[in-house]
Every structure is written in C-alpha cells, then in structure tokens.
Computed example of a mutant assay.
Amino acid sequence: MRIDIEDLSVAYAGRTVVAGARLVAAEGEITGLVGPNGSGKSTLLRTVYRHLKPTAGRVLLAGSDLRELSAVQSARHVAALPQERQSDFELTVHEVVAMGRTPYKRAFAGDDATDRDTVARALADVGLAAAAGRRFTALSGGERQRVLLARAFCQEPDVLVLDEPTNHLDIRHQVELLALLRAQRRTTLVSLHDLNAAASVCDRLHVLHAGAVIASGPPREVLTPALLAQVFGVRAAVVDHPLTGDPLIAFDHRAPAGPKTPAPAEVPTGG
C-alpha cells in the first residue's frame, strides 16, 4: 500500500515542528527520511503510526485518510518501530513478539497455529529463533531492537514505519537488518542518521530541514556535496561504492564545511 503525506504540519508545546510536508512512500519501496537532529523526522513518522495528530494536512493510506480507520484496522495495515521503546517487559521473547498478533485476535483469545507459525517466522527473520524462551529484560540493547522488529513483522503489515532501526545494532546486524528490509519489499518509511545506509537501502529519499521537506528523489540525485554542505554542514565527496556501486559519501573530518546557512525553500526534486 502507498502512503501519501499531504501538506502535513505538526505543532506541540507551542512550536511548529513539521510545516507543510508533502511526500510519498510508494508501494513496495523503501522510502528514507534523512536530516539533521531536530529536523522533524521522528515527529513526521509519529503521525503515520498515529502517535501524534497533525495540526494540518493528512496521511493517506492507499488513498484513504489513515485517521478515519479504527485502531485495529490501522494496526493491521501499519506497524511501527519507534525510537521510544519499552524495555521493562517481564515477558519472554516469544510473548513480546506474539503481541504483534493482537490486531487479529479477540480479547483474551489464545495463540492458534497461525499465530505460532507467524511468531516463529518473524524470530527466524531477525536471527533470534533460539532466544524465544529468554526474558526480554535479559537481552542486550541490540537484541531487544531485533525482538521489537520481529513484533512489527508479526503484525503482517502492508506498511512498516521505522525510526532509526539500526540504533544499538553492531555492524553485522545493521547490514543484516537492511538486507532483510530490502528482501521484505513491504512499503517502508524509515528514518536513518547513517547517510551511507540510507543511500544503500532506500529507493527514494526525502530530506528534512527545519520541519520542511526540501529535497526528494533517488539517493544519487539527492545526496550531492552541495546539499550535504547546505543541510548538514559537512564537506564531503560522493563516489561509487567499490562493492555495490551505490553512492558512497566520504566525509572530510579535517575540514568541515563551516557554519550552515539557511536551507533553500526548495531543492529541485528528482523523478
């Protein structure tokens, strides 16, 4: 299913955090949000998984306003891995992942064969099949991250919304998670701080600056040295990755670009 975000604005504590954002997450593609800290990425994602209500604009799921769906209907279509994550579950890994089946069950109903198979498959996907009986609180931060991703998979959603999903993961599990997202081919909207990861895994990028979307397009068209200097305040070269051919950003750690200037109102967008 496709996500369309139309003229979205979000404000809280008397401050506008997202202002008039327009973007698309195409069906079956991985769409990335990148931008400096405080640019509005997490706030925008929270409106997609209905943690926040926009002050203006709307989020459309396959053409229908997402907020007109019931909570259960929304949970069957959209699953989220937010940054603010509970870590006090006194449950086993299997029980945490099985929570993802809640939108498909009547109150107090037990797990059936479909539920058990879905949980087992999700745990296998994130490499934690052997940890099903362990306590969630006994896991490392990276393991907890993968358990919560498995819970999102268990919802069998049409759309995945992931806010910094590689946080707390070592390099091997970062690579495996990004490869898994590509293999899933679900409509995915993901925020990433790692621009090289975003360039590698995303089909399309939207760059946020001060709450506005200022550039959109394929990573190779968006992640230019000029934009990196303008938005992130860094000096960088963009070359071809020697192994994959993806854009690879080489940052100059000795000579930063200097103070950032105000971002342009709009950067020409790519196809």
Rank of each mutant, 00 (worst) to 15 (best):
A138C: 10
L139W: 05
G142C: 13
V147R: 04
L148S: 03
L148R: 10
A150L: 10
A150P: 06
A150H: 04
A152T: 14
F153L: 14
C154Y: 15
C154D: 13
Q155F: 10
E156T: 06
E156R: 07
E156P: 12
D158I: 11
D158S: 07
V159I: 07
D163F: 02
E164A: 03
E164D: 03
P165V: 02
P165Y: 00
P165R: 03
P165E: 04
P165M: 06
N167A: 02
N167Y: 03
N167T: 01
N167R: 02
N167D: 01
N167G: 05
L169R: 02
L169V: 00
L169E: 02
D170Q: 02
I171T: 09
H173I: 00
Q174R: 13
Q174D: 08
V175E: 14
L177A: 10
L178V: 01
A179D: 12
A179M: 15
A179P: 13
L180Y: 11
L180C: 07
L181C: 05
L181T: 11
L181W: 11
R182G: 06
R182C: 05
R182M: 07
A183K: 14
R185W: 09
R185K: 13
R186V: 08
R186G: 04
T187H: 12
T188A: 03
T188G: 04
L189I: 07
V190Q: 11
S191N: 11
L192F: 02
H193D: 01
H193W: 02
D194Y: 00
L195Y: 02
N196T: 01
N196A: 00
A197V: 09
A197Q: 14
A198W: 12
A198F: 11
A199L: 03
A199V: 01
S200I: 15
V201W: 12
V201R: 14
C202F: 12
C202W: 15
D203L: 08
R204K: 14
R204F: 07
R204S: 13
L205D: 08
H206F: 13
V207I: 09
L208A: 11
L208W: 04
L208T: 09
H209C: 15
G211T: 12
G211S: 13
A212P: 15
